[in-house]
Design a protein around this nucleic acid. Structure first.
Lengths: 238, 238
DNA sequence: TATATTTGTGGCAAAATGACACATAATGGC
DNA sequence: GCCATTATGTGTCATTTTGCCACAAATATA
């Protein structure tokens, strides 16, 4: 193989479609939830494409901002899905025919789709999901009770759960799923939900405080049913 | 934006070049080494492209096999590098001109290159680096004394070091860098090199054996200078 | 006022860790 | 052969971390 072959070799996949998909995770009613949108009567992950003049990371932030209005999210690329037959040509063909648009088989959507799978941790109450560019309906689903999803998007959500479970013990990121001010019991229930097991209350609190990344606020949480717990906030370290 | 715009929107980067780069790591003389190859008088990471009929993972394994002859490696996608100006058009143009091949500016190599950065852990003595498809020279370099490298390949090696340091405490993968039979002192020196700090001998041995993934062989290592240490082997769990 | 529930916090046994000691090879100088 | 030196295997023990429980404080409800 010389440089000429290298330039013209027809069986290489130099130019697949690259997309961005984001598993937008929130925490509500003791459940981890994911924001899905409707695409041609199927639920799918919010996603998008990369502009020529922006980086992958910028594109992911833009896609997330367009869907949620959140400007400083926790957002992480965790896997790439790009198997040989990964395409949504069939789904897209149906949609075009329904819209009476012309379909031709050498359209770019007929190619393999390589997607950069991200997950984002957001505070649901801060999300403004009205900003979607495409006029699609959207909804929060419990990650344990997902509807049938487009392509392999169900697998992507499942993979994000595993990744988050792994990341949460190494990095202090879970607070991104809570309001700016939160209580230790709330943080504990969140961790229990992500890890899928009960944690010991006394130890959990001591552990979290030993990291020295949370600061206790002077006031207590007011609308608590029993004894009012302290409020905490993530320490900005800048 | 409707479906027609969606199909024709020219400022979207649907079709960048996707490449695979592999940081092939080995362990020799108490140093972590990386296998580099020469490209137009610059050192760079072994890499390649994806065939139309293979998955990303298959392509990475093929590229690694072509360079090393290793069939069952530890190989992991750890990051994607794809900034706006990530291209090696300039380098490639020089090479073509040197080879008296024609250069034209809308050639695919002029586009952005998105690379799937992998790292592989190999036993250097098993590597047969003669298998390279392109006729390039190659060499093992200490990861701490790298030459000037093509594009951002130096950054990719640095990122792989961080990722490995993180992964090594969570997964039992370090033995992939050693011969099939190894001693505890060897394994300890390897961990110390990756982590960049001294470890306590007694504790390290107890910790490793507590994982119950290594089996002690009846024989001792024969060519040891002082007391002969036991040999161990990774337990196959299938 | 009594009871149940939730939160904050302290104590203590068990387990893991870090630091060190000591015995066991093996080598090399005398 | 004897001894100092060095590397390895393993035991001990103080310290730290963890798991578990207890109890006090706060608050709603009967």
């Amino acid at each position: 193989m010389d440089a000429t072959d290298f330039l013209e070799n027809g069986h290489l996949l130099f130019l697949p479609n690259i997309s961005i998909d984001i598993v937008i995770l929130g925490f509500q009613d003791g459940d981890l939830k994911v924001l899905l949108q409707e695409f041609d009567e199927q639920w799918c992950l919010p996603g998008g494409y990369i502009f020529k003049e922006e980086s992958l990371a910028d594109a992911a932030h833009r896609v997330l901002y367009d869907r949620t209005g959140i400007e400083q999210p926790f957002l992480k690329l965790f896997q790439v899905f790009g198997d040989k037959d990964r395409s949504f040509a069939l789904e897209f063909k149906k949609l075009l025919e329904k819209s009476r648009l012309h379909w031709h088989p050498d359209l770019w959507v007929n190619q393999r789709f390589v997607t950069m799978a991200h997950y984002a941790l957001v505070n649901i109450s801060e999300v403004e999901p009205t900003r979607g560019v495409l006029d699609l309906s959207h909804n929060w689903f419990s990650v344990d009770k997902l509807p049938t999803m487009l392509m392999d998007h169900g697998d992507i959500v499942a993979a994000s759960k595993h990744q988050l479970r792994r990341d949460i013990t190494l990095e202090h990121i879970s607070f991104n799923l809570l309001p700016e001010e939160f209580t230790m019991p709330e943080l504990q229930r969140l961790h229990e939900t992500i890890l899928g097991r009960k944690l010991e209350r006394s130890r959990f609190q001591k552990k979290m405080l030993s990291f020295d990344v949370f600061e206790r606020l002077p006031q207590l949480k007011e609308d608590a049913p029993r004894r009012k717990p302290y409020l905490y906030r993530f320490k900005e370290s800048d």
